[in-house]
Design a protein around this nucleic acid. Sequence first.
DNA 1: ACACTACTTTAGAATCATTATAAAGTAAGT
DNA 2: ACTTACTTTATAATGATTCTAAAGTAGTGT
Lengths: 138, 138
Amino acid sequence: MNNNSTFKEKLRLSGLRPTKQRIEICKFLFNRRDTFHFTVGELSKILRKKNSEKISLATIYNTVHSFKKKGYLKEISINSDKSYFDTNTSDHHHFLDVNTNQLIDLKNNEVRKVSIKKKIPGKKIKSIEVLVKIENDN
Amino acid sequence: MNNNSTFKEKLRLSGLRPTKQRIEICKFLFNRRDTFHFTVGELSKILRKKNSEKISLATIYNTVHSFKKKGYLKEISINSDKSYFDTNTSDHHHFLDVNTNQLIDLKNNEVRKVSIKKKIPGKKIKSIEVLVKIENDN
DNA sequence: ACACTACTTTAGAATCATTATAAAGTAAGT
DNA sequence: ACTTACTTTATAATGATTCTAAAGTAGTGT
């Protein structure tokens, strides 16, 4: 995803109507080179400052969930009262700095391939997520 | 931890007064061979059925947090609106069955050692948690 | 046993993220 | 333009967790 008309097209192709709210959110989330980690609350605050017209919190929740369902966002499993999302939907892992609560991407080649030796009958592996908690090195 | 007097002693040694609520909770959580995964809400319901005298929800929250702080329980990082705890405090990982929402322990020798190639200056690794999501194998 | 203090338990209120509701707005097709 | 289905929105509802502050209890010293 890159510019307004591309966003419109992408949204339409995904079966999502290209509303101005969705396009605003796309522009903010996907016009960037680096990955971006956020909670819905944070995203809402940032967009409120950035934009003249306010997008309601409910819409941001709806949109983030739609985007996740369509595969444009990934939800990150850390233990928290809030849900974290990631604009990097590729197969990758995370550092979580427990002192600052900051998330940092770990590229796939920075973690040696995790191999699982156990099998559960009738089940297949859907994803493997590695969370590396780091702390100040005193 | 094994029986009542051992629990009392352990609690005292940890700097926690051996109240009857804490001993009840110890008995339920730690008198078992297999690991047990639970949320505070679930634990509360089970104890309410099991025991004659009710333990208040606030106490169960307090106790679970104390036990976690003392290292008798581990909190599991899955993305959920609830917090999951594990009686297995050893270094190990988890399967999460996304169809049933069930957690299954993965022994350490069932996952090939995860090696992290990236370093963050001034930070050290505190823990490495692997969550393997599994689903029905249709 | 008694008294004192610090730690615990408790019910209920408060908080906070998230989801539901239902009314008003808007995109897309006819 | 008209209609329909999808969206947005403010607000209410929900549900897990934490807070509060009053009553209870363990541990210590007398």
